[in-house]
Structure formats: C-alpha cells, structure tokens
Amino acid sequence: MSAVEAGVRDVTSRPRRLSTRFLRSELGLVFGRRRNQVGLVVLIGPPVLISIAVKSSASRPGRGAPDFFSSITENGLFVALAALTIEMALFLPLAVAAVSGDSVAGEASTGTLRYLLTVPVDRLRLLAVKYAGIVAFAFAATLVVTAAGVLMGVVLFGGGNLTLLSGSQIGFGAGLLRVLAAALYLGCGFAALGAVGLFVSTLTEQPIGATLATVIFSAASLIADSIPQVSWVHPYLITHNWTAFGDLFRSPIAWTGIEHGLYSAAGYIVVFFLAAWARFSTKDVTS
C-alpha cells in the first residue's frame, strides 16, 4: 500500500473546487445543438401568428376566446400573455421535455457518459450541471416566447398603459415588468418539469423514450387537472398552478396562486432531483 503511494507521481494539479468550464460547455452543447435552436425558433411561431391573425381580422375575437385575446388590440403586451397561455399546454413542455429527456439518456446512448465519468466527473456534479442546462433552456424558451410576443404586439398594436384584468390601469414600464415576472414564474414551472425529465432520463438509455414519458407526464397532469372527480389531487399536479401567472395582472396582485405554484415547483425539483440522484449514483453504466 505504502509502496504503491510512493511509486505514484503527482502529475495532476489539485482539483479546483469551483469551475464554470463544464457548465459553460454544457450550455454550449444545449444551445449549440441544431435541434434545440430549431425548437426555439418554432416557439416564436405562435406569438407571430396570433398577432398577425388578430391584426388582419377586422373584428375583435369572439366571446369565449382565451382571456388575454380580447385585450390584444388594446395593448400589445397581451400578445405575449396570449402566446404563453397557448404554448403552456404543449409547445413549451415539449421543448423542455426534449432537452431534459436527452440530458442523461442522450449521453448514455452515444456512450459519452462513460467518458465523462472516467474523466472523472463526480456523478452528483454531472447531474447538477445537466440540470442547470435544463433550467437555462426552460427559462430561455419561456423568455423567447415572451420577447417575441412583446415585440410583435408592441409593433402591431402599440404599447401604452396596461388595463389590468380588474379594470385599473398601470404604466407601460410596470406592465412590461409584470409580463417579465409572469415569464419567470412560468419558467419555474417548466424547470420543475425539467427535473421530472432529468429523473426519467436517468432511467433509460433512450432519449426519445425519456422525452415522450416527460411529455406524457405533463399532459396527464393537465388532463387530471380538468377532471373534477379527482379534485383532491389537483393541488399536487405539476401543471395545476401554471395558469396562476394571470394573477399578476390583477390589482392588487393575488399572490396565493403564485406562492402555491412556486412551492409546488420547488417540491417537484427537490423530489425529482433527489430521485434522479438516488437512481444515478449507483447506476451501472454499461452503454
């Protein structure tokens, strides 16, 4: 034993405790990937379509249209909110599921996982960096939709004071701030979905399978949320509080739903990250 240690030269420097190199590399991988870039571009579609459609149809949208639609012609900021509402159900969860489902399973299926682990990268650090990449993408996706909506809306319908759902008015700057807050709030929800995706991704070597499972999880949650007979389960559903971002446009702001949403997201993140860690820390990497 001591002979072994004596024969060992010290060729590597001490490990640095903190380095952002791996994280930056991960972000480069997520955002540099063509598929993800195309995904972000596709997300711009709905805000562009909504604004053009509303602008070109002379009449205002009929009754029964989503809340924010009817207000679009009054203030362009509502395009962003309408777009978020529409994409919240499928497009945004799909984008987050694609990246999170791919996170670990993708590296496993290409075999790069074994080379990262022998570098070595600590398994917990690997999961943390992977999750950081997912969170960054979740927020980026939400902000892309929001930014496209704000831009199209203000160009086509103008800005000005924002009439809140409760009738009172706030200035354009304050309105913009609330739109941003709404986007960040939704980003937290998608980050929670990303934690679910990360967990599923540690279960399989098939990224597509992990992505599908994550989308199904989100869709099943939406469906369950619309069935009154299982109302007891509603508060625990991952999607249940997502629509609460609308509460930011009341006066005064109704914080209860938002608060629940943030707690729920934090709970999902903790539980599923720990589950991913429990699974991944001892997993045989045979790919």
Binding site: S13, P15, R21, F22, S25, V119, V121
Partner: peptide, 9 residues
C-alpha cells in the same frame, strides 16, 4: 475541449 472542460484538475 468538452472533456477537458469537465476535468476539474
């Protein structure tokens, strides 16, 4: 580059 970036040492 990616593998080197992952290496804390």
């Amino acid at each position: 580059r990616r593998l080197d970036a992952a290496d804390l040492r």
